[in-house]
Amino acid sequence: MSEHKHEPVPYRTFILIWIALLALTAITIAVSRVHLGPLNVWVALGVATLKSSLVLFFFMHLKQETRLFRLGLLVLLVILAIFIGMTFIDTLYR
């Protein structure tokens, strides 16, 4: 069992990520004021996904973790997609 310790992430990196997150928040608010039809939701979800990847990989140290952690996340996302997607197979075609 290898005990691997993380190197501390410098403050600078975190602050840069934070600025990026704030910028993305501004973008998502700005875009939401423009009428794009159903595209609005997809843009909002896209930006939110981008923001959450930043949080996951940097704030939550996923970048430094072993492959197992990423694999776990992948499993979660696949299962989530199944749960949501398969429900829509019903509701969209009813």
Partner: peptide
Amino acid sequence: SALFWHLVDLVWIFLFPLYYLIL
């Protein structure tokens, strides 16, 4: 605990546009 806190943040990242920004 920090991981848990980030999760709270993650949920809000999705919650905010979906509830406040629907046009």
